[in-house]
């Protein structure tokens, strides 16, 4: 079950004001005023095409946007650029791509080109990071040949070093079986608690949202509803966005 955030201060650490994204005259996000609280897991739900991934792209600076994105450091109270950890839905890797998990993580961790033999210290460091997410046995496997759950744990390992201010998880469990789901959410929740980080999670899995999310945001171009899972699931906006869906509260 969900661990309470260790040092959640309840303050708003990430705020968007009037965030709007338009592409080719098509409005994808309109006037999104998002509040993410420190140390909390905030789930973003919404129908397909609601702009959830675009919201992440805007936060990461990948999508031109209007409006403000403000991050406030909970410890200093100063505004600054946050350090993001990001776990995408998938990697653009073919199954036979000759890139091991060790190569992939080393490419991020060090300036030493991955086509040179890694030092033993570097290898040990990567193995320790993988062990933290239960993926140390995957180090020498090809990354393109991993199952969905295995690949997500590797990407989570990448996202956690250095410890991010905000962890963005974009549908991290799509295509995962039940045990993989449970394992991934368990690891993410434990890490959130132990590292005291804020997590933004895009998901369609309402059962896991109910179990793990502190707050839920229903997005469809703009924010339609926000609150606890029980509050959002019971609202008219949820029923209109997901007709016929009745998640257990």
């Amino acid at each position: 079950m969900k661990h309470p955030a260790r040092n959640a201060c309840g303050a708003c650490c990430l705020k968007t004001e009037g965030l709007t994204v338009t592409r080719d005259d098509l409005t994808i996000l309109k006037d999104v005023n998002l509040h993410v609280h420190c140390g909390e897991l905030t789930a973003i739900i919404g129908p397909n095409g609601a702009g959830k991934t675009t919201l992440f792209e805007a936060l990461l600076g990948m999508s031109p946007h209007e409006g403000k994105i403000i991050y406030t450091d909970a410890h200093t109270g100063q505004e600054r650029t946050p350090r993001f950890g990001y776990v995408p839905q998938s990697l653009n890797m073919e199954r036979l791509a000759p890139i091991t998990v060790m190569d992939f993580l080393s490419a991020d961790r060090t300036r030493r080109p991955v086509f040179l033999k890694p030092s033993s210290a570097q290898r040990d460091a990567v193995l320790a990071e993988l062990a933290r997410v239960g993926a140390h046995a995957l180090a020498d496997r090809r990354i393109g040949a991993l199952s969905g759950g295995e690949a997500q744990r590797v990407m989570l390992s990448l996202a956690l070093v250095p410890p991010p201010d905000l962890l963005l998880l974009d549908e991290p469990v799509s295509g995962m079986d039940a045990s993989g789901l449970e394992k991934f959410y368990g690891v993410a929740d434990e890490l959130r608690r132990s590292l005291d980080m804020s997590v933004l999670l895009i998901t369609h899995d309402f059962g896991m949202v109910r179990r793990y999310a502190d707050r839920v945001i229903l997005l469809d171009q703009t924010i339609l509803a926000q609150g606890t899972a029980a509050e959002v699931f019971a609202g008219a906006a949820f029923r209109a966005a997901f007709p016929g869906v009745r998640p257990e509260i």
């Binding site: 990001y86 995408p88 990697l91 890139i99 190569d103 992939f104 086509f115 996202a159 963005l168």
Partner: peptide, 18 residues
């Protein structure tokens, strides 16, 4: 640049987050 190019080819948004 090999390392950076490897990350960009894997996922541009992921590379951006790094």
């Amino acid at each position: 640049r090999y390392n950076r190019l490897l990350l960009v080819s894997a996922n541009a948004s992921l590379a951006r987050s790094r």
